[in-house]
């Protein structure tokens, strides 16, 4: 009984995934792209850096990078507190 329910759910899941895969857009053609076009056209002139990905990570979206650095700092803090016996 349980196995048949699982099999039916699996069939529905796979069918849904296949239908959704046929409805996807082509690679590299998103539906909404106004913000991307703004970055690609103006990032070089506004910040002077050639790599647009680094421009977004460190300049336009700097808060995300600050959060990521804080997460790493907190991870080191936690690991050092966890292994404080081994550190002598």
């Amino acid at each position: 009984m349980k196995k048949s329910i699982f099999a039916i759910a699996l069939v529905f899941f796979v069918a849904f995934m296949i239908v959704a895969a046929f409805g996807m857009r082509l690679f590299g053609e998103p539906i909404i792209s106004e913000m991307d076009d703004y970055y690609i056209q103006n990032a070089q002139a506004e910040t002077g850096a050639n790599n647009v990905v680094t421009t977004i990570v460190f300049d336009y979206r700097g808060f995300d990078t600050l959060g990521e650095a804080t997460v790493l700092f907190t991870a080191v803090l936690g690991i050092t507190a966890l292994f404080r016996e081994a550190a002598k």
Binding site: T47, G48, V76, I79
Partner: peptide, 29 residues
């Protein structure tokens, strides 16, 4: 690039040292 190279160097030093501390501490532990 303005402040972008300086921030790259800062984050690079931070990530390098953080992962080094994690590796050393886990080895000793």
């Amino acid at each position: 690039g303005g402040t972008i190279p300086i921030m790259n160097i800062a984050v690079g030093l931070e990530v390098l040292a953080a992962l080094g501390v994690i590796i050393l501490t886990m080895s000793a532990g």
